[in-house]
């Protein structure tokens, strides 16, 4: 945002803020990221903890939504099993553009310690991921840091999402 040293209120001038459309839109997008409550396993507990008293996600404008239609960012917290993968993609499809994905925890990133028949070896096989969050389980601070990194990323993007195809990497 443009910064002004003139105090318009006292000098009775017009309150004018100069900025570009991109910045204005991205300011709005990045400061009210509403994640989808997509708790899958252990990381979901840490996700809840980061929304609860001590870590308090609300101060970042982050309010968990239960419906994909109202959400901007999907935090995939936990192990994605093969049985569930179809539903993960379905929910991702139901989210409205623009949308971002945070893959939380080792299991979501790469399958983690579950190198078994039933686990998807990294959610990026089915959903394009913006931020990978290491840890098993990542602490709430890590999730908050990831969200701030995502805000940074959004501010860098163009407001016109069609221009961002390469940046966003829609893999499949």
């Amino acid at each position: 945002m443009a910064q002004h040293k003139v105090n318009y209120a006292s000098s009775a001038g017009l309150p004018i803020v100069l900025t570009s459309a991109d910045k204005l839109v991205n300011w709005g997008r990045s400061n009210s990221l509403w994640p989808l409550t997509y708790g899958l396993a252990c990381c979901a507990i840490e996700m809840m903890a980061s929304g609860a008293s001590r870590y308090d996600f609300d101060r970042m404008g982050t309010i968990f939504r239960a419906s994909p239609r109202q959400a901007d960012v999907m935090i995939l917290a936990g192990t994605l099993s093969k049985k569930h993968s179809e539903f993960a993609r379905r929910l991702y499809d139901q989210m409205t553009e623009p949308k971002w994905v945070i893959s939380m925890g080792s299991c979501a990133n790469t399958g983690g310690m579950f190198n078994t028949y039933a686990t998807v070896q990294g959610v990026d096989r089915i959903i394009p991921v913006d931020i990978y969050l290491p840890g098993c389980a990542p602490r709430p601070e890590t999730l908050q840091y990831a969200l701030m990194m995502l805000q940074k990323k959004i501010r860098r993007e163009s407001a016109n999402m069609n221009k961002n195809t390469k940046q966003n990497l829609r893999l499949v």
């Binding site: 192990t79 569930h84 310690m113 078994t116 686990t119």
Partner: peptide, 28 residues
């Protein structure tokens, strides 16, 4: 079954001490 991760199968492929951290993820 939406969180089936094959923990019992892992137990058959890990030594007893290796398996212990996996039990964390049962009732997390």
């Amino acid at each position: 079954g939406y969180l089936h991760r094959g923990i019992e199968k892992m137990a058959e492929n890990m030594t007893y001490n290796e398996f212990l951290p996996t039990t964390d993820r049962l009732d997390y």
